[in-house]
Structures are given as C-alpha cells and as structure tokens.
Design a binder for these strands. Sequence first.
DNA 1: TTCTAAATGATAATAGTTATCAATTAGCAT
DNA 2: ATGCTAATTGATAACTATTATCATTTAGAA
Lengths: 147, 147
Amino acid sequence: MITHKKRFETIIQKLKDNGHKITPQRIAIVKILVDSEGHPSVENIHAQIKTDFPTMSLATVYRNIVLIKSLGEVLELGFPDGSNRYDGNKPYPHPHVVCIKCKKIVDPDLDSLDEMKKEVEVETEFKILNHRLDFFGICSDCQAGKV
Amino acid sequence: MITHKKRFETIIQKLKDNGHKITPQRIAIVKILVDSEGHPSVENIHAQIKTDFPTMSLATVYRNIVLIKSLGEVLELGFPDGSNRYDGNKPYPHPHVVCIKCKKIVDPDLDSLDEMKKEVEVETEFKILNHRLDFFGICSDCQAGKV
DNA sequence: TTCTAAATGATAATAGTTATCAATTAGCAT
DNA sequence: ATGCTAATTGATAACTATTATCATTTAGAA
Ligand SMILES: [Mn+2]
Ligand SMILES: [Mn+2]
Ligand SMILES: [Zn+2]
Ligand SMILES: [Zn+2]
C-alpha cells in the first residue's frame, strides 16, 4: 500500500532526525504499525515479529511505542482493561468503532466532531486540547455469526 | 440535594431488591457516589470514608463498586492509566470533559451524540450498544492559574 | 436471641507496563 | 575497514491498580 510506505518513511525519517538509531527491531515495529489495518496491540505486534525474529523482546516493543508516541507518530488507544491498541496511520485523535466480540477496531468517517468540540468549549469554558470517542458494538461479521 | 437523596434511595432499594444486605460500609459508599459532583476515584471514596470510619477496607470499596456497577447504578469511567472515576448520578453513558491539570471531570450538555451514533451505524454496519466520549483540556480555573 | 449465608478486612495473587542493568550494536571518527 | 562509544536491546525484577482468597464478623431472617 502506497500510503503505508509513505508513513513508514515518515516515521523512520523522524527517528533519524531526532538522533535515534535505526535498528532491525525498530524497522520491524514501524512496519507493523503502518501496515496493520486493525489497530494492533503490543502483544499482537510482538507475536507477529517474533515469528521470524525470535529474539525480539516484549520490552523493546513497549519502549519503541513509547518513543514513536513521543514523536507524535502513533495514536495510542488505551483501554482501561489494559488492552491498548495502536494506529500508526492516523496518529491524531479520531473516532473509533470497537467490536466487543471479535475486538476489531475500525475508523469511521465523522465530521460533526469539530462542531461538537466548539459547543463544549463554549458551554464549559474549558480549552479543549484532545478528545476520545469510541463507539462499542457488534460488527456485521459477528452479527452474522461468523465468529 | 434532593436528586442525590433520591438516587441514594434508588440504589439502596435496588440492593435490597436483589437480596444484598445493607451494611454501614455500603451506605457510606453509596452516599459518596451520589453526593459527589466531581466523579470520585476509588482512592478518593476510600479516603473520604476512612476519616470517620477507620476500619473501612479498600477491598470493600472495590467490591461494592463492582456490585453497584452490576446493578447498573453507577457509571465507571475507566482510564488507561488506572485512574478510574465514577458517576453515581448519571449511570448511563454520557460525554465528559476532563481537566488535564486538576483532574476535575464535568458533564457537558450535548445532544448531537444520538445523531452521530446513527450515522456510525449506517456507515460501519455495526450494531452500536455503547459509547464513550471524553474531551480533554484545561478548565477555566486552571487557565486562570488558580491551581 | 440464635443461626447462617453474606460481607468485611487483611493480604496474597494477578497482569500490563515500566525500570534496571549487563551485553550488544548502529553509526560516527579515524 | 576498524575501532569506539553512546544508544539500544533482552532478560527479568519492580511497580501498581485491581481481583482473589480466606478467616472473622455481621445483617437480617427465624
Ligand atoms: Mn484509527
Ligand atoms: Mn458524568
Ligand atoms: Zn466482530
Ligand atoms: Zn482544572
């Protein structure tokens, strides 16, 4: 996918620009972050890499996600049960739709959010800097019993 | 506050109706859940009660919140960093505005959410059952440097 | 008042994440 | 190309919010 390749280059370049070394582990992690459609978890990333990179440590995955997060190049979807998920393609806040059965997470198109943010700023007198919107439900596959 | 008293009675009654005993610990926890304006944390609830009920165990607070949650009478706002907060007055999903400085959480009035939910259902073919909307920012007090 | 299942308090166990530290290595200087 | 050094890694210990365990206590019915 062309946009994924571009994201890959962007993140690698940003790592270089900030004086970080480009290790094989880093490359593998960034690749998965930008190639995944389904918002992978740390465990998922680790498992994928370990298949053909058996020495990959879980700590390295965590460390690099923290690093890439600090560069603003991955969005962390933290869930209270600890099952955090990551979006390396759209590293800015955006709404998500979560299937509570198969744990799939997709990006819907929603434009009314900006309007909503302004509403909230006027009403509450907060300066809004960030937001998080999740819808939880059952995807069409799971509704059809294709679990 | 009249609405809080009503909520208190509602929850106590529901506990009775479901065969649960009304203990002093339970009463204290429910009181705080319905009297708090600011979405208290477990630690906060525990600390408040311990002042004049020194034997109150943290485990009891956790246990009772799980119980009241299971009866649908408190909304849990789980945050990925483990700083969960509770709303005993509006136990159904609703948007929140979180101050990232003083950790205050308020309930804004927002009506466009239902519309948004329908939009998402049409677009993604999910059956939406629940949602979570948080805005993060800085409250007017913190903006004024009243920290 | 007595009885018993439910609830509590104290604490151990759990799980995701972060910290630590010795060993390895990417990338620069020679 | 080689060696150097600070950055990075892998292994594992530590941490922290929450849950489980279990002996003791108690709410509420008989
Ligand atoms: Mn996304
Ligand atoms: Mn609320
Ligand atoms: Zn599904
Ligand atoms: Zn504030």
